[in-house]
């Protein structure tokens, strides 16, 4: 059997909220070491990669590997039943046809249970090659979310330039062009060598969808390398990571 309990059920609710506009039907892989999910959006331009380690759960048991095909759209509807401060338990049998979700409030006087029907999906698993990222930067997730929203009003596309010490977001649209440069480190030792920077352009529409995850973490990590998808990574405290990959725009 499989059973996983999170004391703070709203974390799981936020994760589902943060991916529901990108992916619809997904396979959640439950293994003895944790839960993971990898799915692409319908246009194959963005990929969601979630890993939650067993040690972050209050209780975790998974006797054998299970693939749980689930509609994220429907799961998001069920998540509306999760209230602030509720715990959440996910459980199923070994050959499951449904996933049971149990939410309980802190006083233990209110319990909600729902069985979500499982679906069979072709798994289209993509192997993400080991990548040496040229540029990595961690910044405030709220700030990143806000600036992506504002830049989207000015342009559909943003050009990223990131290094070890700064990140620059440049846009060019019908009304003009501009950029936001954020200095993130004043470490002299770091700047003594020439900085490697990479410039890549991305669709702001997708970045805004990724930013629905900003409430999961105060920080967001951006990783870039030439001709490689951007990685936007949110650490889910003590539980795991939620990563989004986005294909760069290219001049045809």
């Amino acid at each position: 059997m499989f059973e996983a309990k999170l004391t703070d059920g709203t974390i799981f609710k936020k994760i589902i909220e943060a991916i529901k506009d990108l992916v619809t039907d997904v396979n959640i892989d439950a293994t003895p070491t944790g839960l993971s999910l990898q799915a692409m959006d319908s246009s194959h331009v963005a990929l969601v990669n979630l890993h939650l380690g067993m040690e972050g759960f209050e209780r975790y048991r998974c006797d054998r590997n299970l693939t749980l095909g689930i509609s994220i759209t429907n799961l998001a509807k069920v998540m509306k039943l999760v209230n602030q401060n509720d715990s959440i338990t996910l459980k199923c049998e070994d050959e499951p046809t449904y996933l049971t979700i149990v939410c309980q409030n802190q006083k233990h006087d209110r319990t909600t249970q729902f069985n979500v029907n499982l679906i069979t999906l072709d798994s289209e698993h993509l192997g993400i090659p080991e990548t040496e990222y040229t540029s990595e930067i961690t910044m405030n997730s709220g700030e990143f979310s806000k600036l992506c929203k504002e830049l989207y009003a000015l342009s559909e596309t943003v050009e990223f330039e990131i290094s070890t010490t700064f990140v620059k977001f440049a846009v060019e649209g019908e009304i003009g062009s501009g950029s936001i440069k954020i200095q993130t480190s004043a470490d002299e030792a770091e700047t003594s060598r020439p900085e490697d920077t990479v410039k890549l352009s991305f669709a702001l529409r997708y970045l805004n969808l990724f930013n629905k995850a900003y409430s999961l973490s105060n920080q967001v990590k951006l990783s870039m390398a030439a001709e490689t998808p951007l990685v936007v990574e949110y650490e889910v405290e003590s539980l795991g990571t939620l990563k989004y990959y986005l294909a760069p725009k290219i001049t045809d």
Binding site: M40, S43, H44, V45, A46, L47, E124, H125, L126, G127, I128, P129, T157, S201, A203, T228, P229, Y245, A247, P248, K249, I250, T251, D252
Partner: peptide
């Protein structure tokens, strides 16, 4: 003209 290559071309089908 901007286009986006599918992720399938960067990642490996397994």
């Amino acid at each position: 003209n901007w286009t986006q290559r599918d992720l399938d071309q960067y990642f490996i089908q397994v």
